[in-house]
């Protein structure tokens, strides 16, 4: 197992997680094999992608869809599938 794991004296007792929202620290972006890209010229900012994204990886500013959080996006393609104007394309991940 990874050498970064903490020992029993370093973790909170009882299996509690005492740091709120620490899931953000977990880089799930590396799991991606396909990557979403948006064509903002076609986008109508309906935010269907934001509603359906299971990993909260759609960035929104002032009510407008601005892009993706690639550190957490797993590349599932739900956003591309749900988009009513087909402005999100899943492209092969280049690593």
């Amino acid at each position: 197992m990874s050498e970064n794991l903490k020992n029993s004296r370093e973790i909170p007792i009882g299996g509690k997680i005492i740091e709120a929202g620490n899931a953000a620290k977990y880089d799930t972006g590396s799991w991606r094999t396909f990557k979403p890209e948006v064509d903002k010229k076609k986008c109508i900012n309906c935010l269907q992608c934001w509603i359906f994204c299971p990993d909260s990886s759609i960035k929104v500013e002032d009510g407008k869809m601005t892009g993706f959080d690639y550190e957490h996006c797993k590349g599932c393609g739900i956003c591309a599938s749900i988009c009513p104007v087909k402005c999100i394309e899943m492209k092969k991940e280049i690593k």
Partner: peptide, 28 residues
């Protein structure tokens, strides 16, 4: 210790605990 009703310091009780940390919690 770490009460759920302390809303200024939110905590999670009872999350899934697998091969990486379950054993350490049993050690505790």
């Amino acid at each position: 210790q770490d009460p759920l009703l302390d809303i200024d310091n939110p905590v999670t009780y009872g999350p899934l605990d697998l091969q990486d940390y379950y054993f350490e919690h049993k050690l505790q």
